[in-house]
Amino acid sequence: MGRLFSRDSDATVERSETPQVVCLDDDHANEILGALQSETAQSAFRALNREPMAAAELAAELEVSVQTAGYHIENLLDANLIEQHETVYSEKGREMAVYGPATEPTMLFFGTSDDQRALESAFREYASVLGVGAVVLAIRGVLSPLEPLFDWL
């Protein structure tokens, strides 16, 4: 989709190679699941991961009001799933925040915090040998029987 606003944006996102691991028994897991509970929220999250954009641009892409886009942006910000990457100006000179994926990716782990250290250790070990992409593909392969649960990813 083309830009609705004339702006010079060089928002690039450099992601950390080590994700934050959030276990299901962590309070942060509730924030994440709550922020992604609706189809609109999931669409907003996917759109902002594809391309950083301002709330008005997100609203136009999702065909929702700016208020609705702003509501989902706030929830995603509170869950640390996205962050503000820069501030730009519209053609009318209005200041606009540009949002995109969080620098530190989040891995929601369907286990308890007792298992967290072992998972983080295994992730670091495999990531250093195979690279993060291979580890993500391996995890996705293991979880593929659960894929209907992850359609929103």
Rank of each mutant, 00 (worst) to 15 (best):
M1W: 01
M1H: 09
M1G: 04
R3K: 04
R3E: 15
S6D: 15
D8E: 15
S9N: 11
S9D: 14
E17M: 10
E17V: 09
P19L: 03
P19A: 05
Q20C: 04
Q20P: 10
Q20M: 11
V21F: 01
V22G: 05
D26K: 03
D27Q: 08
A29H: 09
A29G: 04
N30M: 14
E31A: 13
E31K: 08
I32K: 03
L33H: 02
L36K: 02
E39Y: 01
E39V: 06
E39S: 08
Q42V: 12
Q42I: 12
A44Y: 02
F45V: 11
F45S: 04
R46V: 05
R46C: 06
R46G: 02
A47G: 10
L48F: 06
L48Q: 00
N49E: 08
N49D: 02
N49I: 10
R50T: 11
E51Y: 03
P52C: 13
P52N: 13
A54P: 04
A54E: 04
A55E: 00
A56K: 15
A59M: 07
A60P: 02
A60M: 05
E61C: 11
L62R: 03
E63W: 00
V64T: 07
V64N: 00
A69S: 09
A69P: 01
G70Q: 03
H72S: 05
H72T: 09
N75D: 07
N75I: 14
A79C: 08
A79L: 13
I82L: 08
I82R: 06
I82H: 06
E83N: 07
Q84I: 11
H85K: 01
T87W: 14
V88N: 01
V88R: 01
V88A: 12
K92S: 15
K92I: 15
R94Y: 06
R94L: 15
E95S: 05
E95M: 13
M96N: 06
M96Q: 04
G100M: 01
P101T: 13
A102S: 10
A102V: 05
E104V: 15
T106N: 05
T106P: 02
L108W: 09
F110W: 12
F110D: 13
F110V: 05
A118M: 07
L119H: 09
L119K: 07
L119G: 03
E120D: 12
A122R: 13
F123A: 08
R124V: 06
R124T: 12
R124L: 06
E125Q: 09
V129E: 14
V129D: 09
L130M: 10
G133F: 11
G133W: 13
G133S: 13
G133V: 09
V136Q: 02
A138L: 04
R140H: 04
R140F: 03
R140I: 04
G141F: 13
L143A: 15
S144F: 06
P145H: 00
L146M: 02
P148D: 14
P148A: 12
P148V: 00
L149R: 11
F150N: 14
D151Y: 15
D151M: 12
W152H: 15
